[in-house]
Simulated assay, not measured.
Amino acid sequence: MLAIHARYRGREIRRAQLVRRSAEALSTLNGVGEFEILGVEDICAVVDSPAALCDTVMALLSDGSWAIGIGVAPGSTDEDHTRASATGALRGSVRAGTVKVAISPKGSSTLESDIAAVFALMGHVLSKRTIEGREATSLVRSGLNQNEAAEELGISKQAMSQRLQAAGWQAETAGWGLAVNLLTRANAGATD
């Protein structure tokens, strides 16, 4: 079982409203349960699959204002326990853009650090993205091919290709696949 806990670390004055709206929006992602609002800055949800978890983490990393805890409880059906693992991953002070992982019962610390590392790398790619790059990658991620995305933006296929390259689309795609694979292993109870 997988869960995610996110803590808002941005500078929004009306953070409680932003956190509530974010919880509502994230709950609409495929495979994501309803986000529970925990206080003013924290939200937590159970997630159905490694792919849905990666999509959720990517959305939070794209915003740049969230610290993220991932809880993995292989073979568990206890949602409260899995949520507690995600919450436990965020113990102490954490900065925006940080992803921490807790596998429960205590799993491989190497696997935990590998998952955190791949999200750190993807977070770096996302933080360097321009508005044009975000538009291009969003369209391709939604299922459009490059020609369709270029037409949607009113640009040439070559310009679309250049935007995707500058936005680090290949690195994001590779990182996303690696994160899904690592989370799948962790959720299956791998120990190495």
Score class of each variant (00 low, 15 high):
S76T: 11
D78A: 14
E79L: 15
H81M: 14
H81L: 15
H81Y: 14
H81E: 14
T82D: 11
T82C: 13
T82R: 12
T82S: 12
T82G: 10
T82I: 12
R83C: 15
A84S: 15
A84F: 13
A86W: 10
G88C: 12
L90E: 13
L90C: 11
L90A: 11
L90S: 13
R91M: 12
R91G: 13
G92D: 11
S93L: 15
A96H: 10
V99A: 04
K100T: 10
V101I: 08
V101D: 05
S104R: 14
S104F: 10
S104V: 13
P105L: 06
K106Q: 10
K106I: 08
K106T: 10
G107K: 06
G107R: 09
G107L: 05
G107E: 04
S108W: 08
T110S: 08
L111R: 07
E112K: 03
E112D: 01
D114Y: 06
I115N: 02
I115C: 04
A117W: 07
A117E: 08
F119P: 01
A120S: 09
A120K: 02
L121Y: 09
M122V: 08
G123P: 02
G123N: 03
G123A: 04
V125H: 03
V125P: 00
L126N: 00
L126W: 00
L126M: 04
S127R: 08
S127W: 00
K128S: 06
R129S: 00
R129Y: 00
T130N: 02
T130H: 03
I131G: 03
E132R: 09
E132K: 09
R134F: 01
